[in-house]
Computed example of a mutant assay.
Amino acid sequence: MSERAPVPPSDRRTFVSKVAAVVIGGLVTVAAPIAGLFPILDPLRRRGETRGMVRVTSFASLPESGEPRKFPVLDTLVDAWNRTENVPVGSVYVQRTGENSVRVLNSVCPHLGCSVGYNAAGHGYFCPCHKSSFTVDGAIADPKSPSPRGMDPLDAVVKDGEVWVKFQNFRKGSPERIAV
Rank of each mutant, 00 (worst) to 15 (best):
V73L: 04
R69W: 05
P8M: 05
F15R: 03
R83V: 15
E64P: 05
F38G: 07
P8K: 12
R47G: 11
R51E: 11
P43Q: 05
R83W: 10
D79N: 14
A60Q: 12
K18Q: 10
V23P: 02
A32L: 14
A32K: 04
A32V: 15
F15Y: 04
V56Q: 03
A31Q: 09
L37W: 02
F15H: 04
F71G: 03
V89W: 01
L77V: 15
P9A: 15
P68W: 01
V19Y: 01
T57F: 01
P72A: 13
V89C: 07
K18E: 08
R69Y: 04
W81D: 15
V7L: 15
R46C: 04
P63G: 07
E67D: 03
A20M: 08
A32M: 11
G25W: 08
K70E: 13
P68C: 03
V7H: 15
P88T: 03
E67Y: 00
D42R: 14
A60V: 14
V28C: 07
L62R: 09
V22P: 00
F71N: 02
S91P: 00
N82I: 14
D42N: 10
M53H: 00
V7W: 13
V28M: 09
T57W: 00
L44G: 09
T29H: 05
G36N: 15
P8L: 06
G48C: 02
T50A: 11
S61W: 12
V22C: 03
Y93G: 02
V87C: 07
D42P: 01
G66L: 08
I24E: 07
D75K: 01
L27E: 10
P33F: 09
D42H: 08
S61R: 15
V23Y: 08
L77P: 03
K18H: 06
T50R: 12
V87N: 06
S10L: 15
D75T: 01
G52L: 01
D11H: 11
L74R: 02
A20E: 05
S10E: 15
S58K: 09
R13K: 11
F38W: 14
V56W: 00
L37K: 02
R13Q: 08
T57L: 01
V92S: 01
P43E: 05
V16C: 00
P39S: 09
S58D: 13
S61T: 14
S17Q: 15
E67A: 14
S17R: 14
V56E: 02
P88M: 05
N86H: 15
L41S: 00
A31G: 09
V16I: 10
E64T: 10
T84I: 14
V28Q: 07
S10I: 11
P43F: 08
L62H: 06
T76K: 11
S17P: 00
N82C: 07
I24R: 12
D42G: 06
F71C: 02
R12H: 06
T50I: 07
P63D: 10
R83N: 14
D11F: 07
L44T: 03
F38T: 09
L77G: 05
G48N: 12
